[in-house]
Design a protein around this nucleic acid. Structure first.
Lengths: 255, 255
DNA sequence: GTATTTGTTTTATATTATAAAACACTGTTT
DNA sequence: AAACAGTGTTTTATAATATAAAACAAATAC
């Protein structure tokens, strides 16, 4: 596959701007790219022509242009959570070797809408489309925990606490306590509450309005992953979930 | 200024993808660009390498990549409304020849935070930083109209309806009626209510949470712009305001 | 079963990107 | 005040590189 050098370099230059505020001098770009500044200049001017780069009129410094924002928003419109989340599920699975899942709320249950299997994962059955109880799964707890009060009240009304394992939470008081914990921590867990030998962690995914629209989870065999490693995995999980939320337009500040 | 042909072409290719055309065949790209498909192929592969283009594994069709979304969201974080709105104010002024303004709410008044003068505009005094009453300006009406009920009640409590011209609305009943109208239409007007001879239109700007955070306006001399032309200007105004909202992450659907 | 799609790879040519050097300008240091 | 060290920009020769023709593989259509 033939790579176009000039285009490749131009896109590398864009990557140098790692924050929205970063402004770069042409000389700094040329040294960091190991290119002569006249070369960089031509590339920048072409990028600028299309709006991918802007120039600060006074200082002459260069920064990212609005075209990226426009195209990004355009892209966001026609996409669903699954498309956006996919690569993050994949990278979390690659990092941990465990299976990851994407789950949304439907009625009083969760529904698996995507999954990526890890190569170390022993459990291999397709979960996509399958339903999962809220009270006995990490994803379910997350989805329930971040509903509004009214919606949660409705959910809990006549809720059926089916027991799956010895550890399954089977009363409202304990479930509500679990949800409070999930909200506080920004994550929920399932310690062999749904299936014997299986431990999961889940984190919320927020959309641009600040609502939790999905949960992302990581499943492990309790026997295969020890406490400290599981804790590390959860850190990664939360990081990936946050990345997805950010892509969906979520920003922490909400009034 | 030397333009890099390959880069320029690559960016043109990205522009081929818009709301209606999300996926394109390589042959279609080559015909529309009037380039040989091998050339297009090289460009696409380089773009793909950086994540600006994705390929549908099955169909082989190409589409925009997630990198645009990432960069776009990155850009959005560190920016304020003014930066984002600037070019839209400018283009509206260019199209109409009239002056445009960007106004935010501060207490019980509006504050001009940006403006672009039109070349046909006769009124030439800087309004940036200046304050404007809510009841006698188009922007003020918009800002008031799209507040929540509580906030609006607070605003109206002990509000001082200063009279500026013969047309100035000076009682709460009439003002509330005006606000209802503004909400219904998605725009508000000022028919010489603030200054004799000056007529303005204003439209709301929404942020990603669905809240109205600013108003954009267009000012005309009643004597210079007739009814039908003014109506056309308002259409453009609403379009530009909507574009800014979209850049801020606003999408119509809100529950 | 042939023909026409699709996307991809290869290869020769000359167009085009490249980088050196000169330029214009600003601000700083002597 | 004058030389200097910074900017970003323009010009120019060279040769490296993008280009497009043609051949390829593989799927779909007729």
């Amino acid at each position: 596959m033939p790579i176009i050098q000039s285009l490749d370099r131009a896109l590398q230059i864009i990557d140098l701007f790692d924050e929205s505020t970063t402004e770069l001098k042409i000389t700094e770009i040329s040294t960091r790219m190991q290119l002569h500044k006249s070369t960089v200049h031509s590339l920048l001017k072409t990028l600028q022509l299309h709006g991918y780069i802007d120039q600060n009129e006074e200082s002459g410094k260069y920064k990212l242009g609005m075209k990226l924002l426009e195209k990004g928003q355009l892209l966001l419109q026609g996409m669903d959570i699954r498309t956006i989340a996919r690569k993050h599920l994949a990278s979390l699975s690659a990092l941990t070797g465990q299976s990851t899942h994407l789950v949304i709320l439907d009625g009083k249950e969760g529904v698996y809408i995507d999954k990526v299997e890890g190569d170390k994962a022993a459990i291999r059955y397709s979960r996509i489309g399958r339903r999962v109880p809220l009270h006995s799964s990490a994803v379910g707890k997350v989805l329930a925990a971040f509903q509004g009060e009214e919606a949660l009240t409705k959910l809990l009304h006549n809720y059926n606490y089916t027991v799956h394992t010895a550890a399954t939470i089977h009363d409202e008081a304990a479930f509500v306590r679990e949800l409070r914990q999930a909200r506080a921590e920004g994550a929920a867990y399932d310690h062999e509450e749904n299936e014997p030998g299986v431990r999961c962690g889940a984190a919320p995914i927020y959309d641009h309005t600040g609502a939790v629209i999905a949960a992302m989870s990581l499943s492990t065999l309790t026997s295969a992953v020890d406490e400290s490693q599981f804790a590390e995995y959860v850190v990664l999980l939360k990081k990936e979930a946050a990345a997805i939320s950010q892509l969906l337009g979520y920003r922490r500040a909400h009034g």
